[in-house]
C-alpha cells in the first residue's frame, strides 16, 4: 500500500466487488436523475434573469402528470436497486452450512478471537483464503462494531447477545480491521488486521499457534470447564439433581415451561448459562444459579462449543 492518497479500498472478497458494483451503478442512475436538475436550474436562472428579455408567456403553475411522473419513475427505478441491495444484505446473514466458526469477543478496547481448533489471538485475525468463515460475536461491555473495509462488511457486537456475519475472503493479504461503533476513550485505536492466508499457510499458522502451549480445541476447553464449573454435577445423566441432560442438545427443539418451544442455538445456551430463569425447560424446576458474574464471555463460548461438539458425537453414533 503506497503512502499518500488512497481513493478506493481494496476488494478482498466477491461480496466487496458486488457492493462496489452496486454503488457504482446506483451512483450512475442517481447522476442521470440529478444532472438535469442542476443543468436546468442553472440554465433557467441565467436565461430568465430579470435583466434579460425573453418570452415568459404561459408559464405553467401546475401539472398533475408531470408531478406524478417525476415522483413515480425515480421511485420505481430505486426499487430495483432496493431489491438488489436487500438480497446482498440477506446474503451476508446466511452463512453456508460448511462455514468454519470463529468466536469474537470484544471489550474496551481489544478484539479477542477463538478459533475452533483452539488457537486464540488478539486484535489480528488469521483466516484461510477461499473458505467461508462465520464470525459469532459478542461483547463484554459496550457496543462495538466489527468493520473490515476490504470486505465491505460491518456488524455491531452487542453485550448479552450473539450477532454473526460471514465472509469468504478470496485474496490473501492484510486488511485493516476497525471498531466502527463509538466505544469510549480508546475507540480509535481499537483495531487490527485481518490476515488472509493461503489454506496451507493457514494450516501452518494454526499448528505454530498450537505449539505455543494452548490447551486443545475450543470444545476441549469447554469440556474442562463443564467439569470445573460444576455443570456436570447437575447436568450429567447420572446426577441426583433433576436437571436436563445436555448431550446433543445443540440444534434440537427444547420445550419450555410456558408451553413454547425454542431451538437450542448459541443465544439460547448462552442465555441459559447467564440468565437461567429467562427460559425454563419444561418439567424442570427453576433452580440453576446464574453464572453471569463467574464466567467470561470467552468461557461461555467454549462451553457452547463443547455442547455443540456433543451434538456431533451423538449424531455419529
Amino acid at each position: 500500500m503506497s503512502a499518500g492518497i488512497e481513493l478506493w479500498p481494496p476488494q478482498a472478497s466477491h461480496h466487496a466487488e458486488q457492493v462496489d458494483l452496486l454503488i457504482g451503478s446506483f451512483g450512475a442512475m442517481v447522476w442521470l436523475l440529478t444532472l438535469p436538475v442542476f443543468v436546468l436550474m442553472t440554465w433557467f436562472t441565467i436565461r430568465y434573469r430579470r435583466s434579460h428579455q425573453v418570452n415568459r408567456q404561459h408559464a405553467p403553475t401546475h401539472n398533475l402528470w408531470v408531478e406524478l411522473g417525476w415522483s413515480v419513475i425515480p421511485f420505481l427505478l430505486t426499487l430495483g436497486f432496493y431489491v438488489w441491495a436487500t438480497m446482498l444484505f440477506f446474503d451476508i446473514h446466511r452463512p453456508p452450512p460448511d462455514a468454519m466458526t470463529i468466536h469474537v469477543v470484544a471489550k474496551q478496547w481489544m478484539w479477542k478471537y477463538q478459533h475452533p481448533e483452539g488457537a486464540r489471538e488478539i486484535n489480528d485475525l488469521h483466516v484461510p483464503a477461499g473458505e467461508p468463515v462465520e464470525l459469532v460475536m459478542t461483547s463484554e461491555d459496550v457496543i462495538h462494531s466489527f468493520f473490515v473495509p476490504g470486505l465491505r462488511i460491518k456488524q455491531d457486537l452487542v453485550p448479552g447477545r450473539y450477532t454473526s456475519l460471514w465472509f469468504n475472503a478470496s485474496r490473501p493479504g492484510r486488511y485493516a480491521l476497525r471498531c466502527a461503533e463509538f466505544c469510549g476513550t480508546d475507540h480509535s485505536v481499537m483495531g487490527g488486521n485481518l490476515i488472509v492466508l493461503q489454506p496451507q499457510d493457514y494450516a501452518a499458522w494454526l499448528s505454530r499457534s498450537a505449539d505455543g502451549g494452548l490447551d486443545g480445541t475450543l470444545a476441549e476447553t469447554g469440556a474442562t470447564l463443564f467439569r470445573q464449573m460444576g455443570c456436570s454435577g447437575c447436568h450429567a445423566a447420572a446426577s441426583p439433581v433433576r436437571a436436563p441432560a445436555l448431550g446433543g442438545i445443540f440444534g434440537r427443539p427444547v420445550a419450555l415451561s410456558d408451553g413454547r418451544t425454542v431451538i437450542a442455538d448459541e443465544q439460547y445456551l448462552s442465555d441459559a448459562i447467564l440468565l437461567p430463569n429467562k427460559e425454563i425447560a419444561a418439567g424442570y424446576p427453576s433452580i440453576m444459579p446464574t453464572y453471569g458474574n463467574v464466567l467470561t464471555a470467552e468461557q461461555v463460548n467454549a462451553l457452547v462449543a463443547y455442547l455443540k461438539s456433543t451434538h456431533a458425537a451423538q449424531d455419529s453414533k
Binding site: F44, Y48, R50, A59
Partner: peptide, 18 residues
C-alpha cells in the same frame, strides 16, 4: 424529490432577481 423538482420548475419562465 418532489420539492426539488417543483422548485426547479418554478424557475422556468420566471423573472429572476439574482
Amino acid at each position: 424529490a418532489i420539492k426539488v423538482y417543483n422548485w426547479t420548475a418554478t424557475l422556468y419562465k420566471a423573472d429572476i432577481a439574482i
